[in-house]
Simulated assay, not measured.
Amino acid sequence: MPVVRNATVIKEEGVGEDKNLCFPGMSTCTAVVMVAGATLLGAHFTADRAKDVDSLKPHTKKLVQRLKDKLGARIPDRLLIVGFNVNHNPALLAQALGFGSKGDYARASLEAFDISNLVSNYREDIMITFEHSGDGAQPSVDYKRTSKTVREETADNPKATKDNLFDGRKSVVTINNTPHYLRQHFTNLAALVG
């Protein structure tokens, strides 16, 4: 049975905010999502295997700043990093965003999930979705192969296609069959961030 979500679609190197976020076209990327009250703020990071904050690539530094700017004065209580984390350093991304014992958001929960082992037999990219009920609970995180999803029109773009929909706008996303829910095995990053 198809699952329909009204979500903000975040393209590669994009940033968005909503209760529901959708990250399509992920094959080496990772989704970085902050929970701030009743909303989610997320960014779609391209691969960067930096060893420390100073060696982050310019595109990563720019996206970290855009996500911080989107957050503004709000205080996030959770950070989720989900995707092909083998191509990233989740603890470093958390540190760059101000999480960890020495950061601005020392009390936030820090969690990561490397999806690469689950989808290693896929020969195509995946879509990761986050849904937040706003009740203080952890958002649900799902994934599905991109070929099993259909992107539909937005209110202001009734002729949306795969190529022009990924612009951070709220969209109707239809997932053929039930998506795969990530239930457990999130890694606690707090000790790694310091």
Rank of each mutant, 00 (worst) to 15 (best):
D52T: 00
I175G: 04
G136R: 09
L41G: 04
I75Q: 12
V35H: 01
S147P: 01
D125G: 15
T149H: 08
F23C: 14
P58I: 01
A191E: 10
D125C: 09
K51G: 01
V141F: 02
V15Y: 02
Y105M: 01
G14P: 03
D142T: 11
R66K: 15
A108P: 03
L189Y: 01
V33Q: 06
P24G: 02
L63K: 08
E17W: 07
Y105P: 03
S109A: 11
V35S: 05
A190K: 10
V15Q: 02
V150R: 12
L192F: 13
V119L: 06
D167A: 12
G194E: 07
R49S: 15
K159E: 13
Q65N: 15
R145N: 07
A96H: 11
N176C: 05
K62Q: 07
F23G: 12
L110W: 03
F166G: 09
I10D: 02
A94H: 12
R5V: 14
A38K: 15
S109L: 08
I128H: 02
F45N: 03
P76Y: 15
A106H: 12
K19G: 05
A96C: 05
G25V: 02
F186S: 00
V33T: 11
S55H: 14
N176W: 12
R169D: 10
V35R: 05
A106S: 13
T46G: 07
Y122A: 01
N164S: 00
A7I: 03
K57V: 01
A108Y: 04
A36S: 14
G83M: 06
Q138T: 12
R123L: 07
A94G: 12
C29H: 00
L63E: 06
Q184R: 09
A50D: 05
V33N: 08
V4S: 06
G72Q: 07
A91P: 02
I126E: 08
A112P: 00
K159T: 05
V3T: 14
V9T: 12
I10T: 01
S147T: 07
C22F: 02
K159Y: 13
Q65M: 13
M34N: 01
G103H: 13
L21V: 04
R78F: 08
L80P: 12
A7H: 01
D142Q: 10
L79D: 10
V64Q: 05
R123F: 02
A106P: 08
L97C: 04
R183W: 09
T46E: 09
G168N: 06
A43P: 07
G98K: 06
G37H: 06
G100D: 05
D54L: 14
M34C: 00
F166Q: 09
G83I: 10
N20Q: 15
H185P: 10
K51Y: 13
L80Y: 13
S120C: 14
E17H: 08
A112Q: 04
K68E: 03
Q138F: 10
K159N: 14
D163K: 13
T178H: 12
A137E: 06
K68D: 03
A91T: 04
K162M: 14
Y105L: 03
L41E: 02
Y143P: 11
T30V: 06
